[in-house]
Computed example of a mutant assay.
Amino acid sequence: MVEKIKVGLVGIGNCFSGLIQGIEYYRQNPSQQVIGIIHEKLAGYGIHDIEFVVGFDVGENKIGKTINEAIYEYPNMVTWIPKENMPKTNAKVFESPILDGVGLWVENRIKPIKSNKTDEQLAEEIKKQIKESGAEILVSYLPVGSDKVTQFWAQMCLDTGTAFVNCIPSFICSDETWGKKFAEKGIPVIGDDIKGQVGATIVHRTLARLCNDRGTKIEKTYQINVGGNTDFLNMKEQDRLVSKKISKTESVQSQLDERLDDDQIYVGPSDFIPFLGNTKLMFMRIEGRQWANIPYNMEVRLEVDDKANSAGIVIDAIRLAKIALDRGIGGPIYPASAYLMKHPPKQMTDPQAKASCEEFVSGKSN
């Protein structure tokens, strides 16, 4: 029997709520095939081998609660498992520094705690809380635009010897300086910016690659996304979107043999529509030319549950980080990052990334 993978979480929002409720769904429905992950077992680790041992948040209604209570607090929307049916845990949610983690549009919904502690005091407390919890991997579900606080948590991982899975487009794994810091400490890092299982960008880059491989010339393309949860509300603040647009755009551009000019490609979140809730809508268009310079175009509309779309990918990221820990591999985990993230340190085509990931799991590569 394999040991538990002890995981800490930063940001107890909808994404994590969908992740932990999904694990419980499969526990309560053992006859159901587990879908949305690479393999049911990775190096012997299954989804029920993951244990969430500590959480961190800025919401005054989540801090101090156990994780199983905090995931149902406003403004979270995921209720796949009724609250009374969610197993209780002793794992607590502790205070995180705010820094740049709360945007203008979401402040009234999140209601961040009015702390009397300095960031330095919180850092010392957090390092102790990570150590006492036994967490060996920290997953960041911070809001888009949280660059300073992402760097804070990356440093916490370096200071405590904890592997880091960065699910947002604040660049750590793909940043040469930060990647080197993790490599020097021998600590695994996977990032940056999680791909959805069948999300907007994975569909866009796959179709762009298909057009490229079939010999057509793409001339222009766009991808527009709308949704109704706090993620999309946060992204109404354009200043927080710089790295998000870079991440999504480069993910598509990386699949083309010939880059598009910046004014011929648009990839990014576009608006917040409250009644959509956790539903995300994507509208994509590709225009190009075929044989004899004849034009073609395609349009795609995708509708997904935004939180179900990322949960299985994070499950794989956690297990791959654990494999790296078990094998003493530190620094950016290139195969996992290329396969699971939009902005990895090394871009690959998705078939190449999957093959590389399989080799990593089997021990044939690092």
Rank of each mutant, 00 (worst) to 15 (best):
E3V: 00
K4P: 02
K4I: 01
V10M: 06
F16H: 10
G18T: 03
G18K: 01
Q21L: 04
G22R: 02
Q32M: 12
E40N: 13
A43C: 10
V53I: 08
V54D: 10
A70S: 12
E73G: 10
N76A: 08
W80D: 13
I81R: 09
P82V: 01
K83N: 14
K83I: 06
M86I: 07
V102K: 04
V106C: 12
D119C: 06
D119I: 01
A123V: 00
I130H: 03
I130V: 11
E132V: 03
E132K: 12
I137Q: 09
S140D: 08
S140A: 13
S140L: 14
Y141I: 00
L142V: 04
G145P: 03
G145C: 06
Q155I: 00
Q155S: 14
M156N: 06
C167S: 15
E176A: 14
W178C: 04
A183C: 05
G196Y: 02
V198K: 13
G199A: 09
T201W: 03
V203L: 15
N212G: 06
R214V: 11
I218M: 15
I218E: 03
G227Q: 06
G227P: 02
G228H: 02
D231M: 10
F232I: 01
F232H: 11
Q238G: 11
R240G: 05
L241R: 12
V242I: 13
I246C: 10
E250T: 05
E258T: 15
Y266P: 05
Y266L: 11
F272N: 05
F272G: 07
M284R: 05
E287H: 10
W291C: 11
W291A: 14
A292R: 13
N293D: 15
M298Q: 09
E299H: 03
V300Y: 08
D305L: 01
K307N: 11
K307C: 09
A308K: 12
I313Q: 14
I315Y: 14
D316R: 02
L325F: 07
R327K: 12
G328W: 11
Y334R: 09
P335W: 01
A336N: 05
K342I: 04
H343A: 15
T349G: 07
A355F: 05
C357L: 15
C357F: 06
F360R: 00
K364E: 14
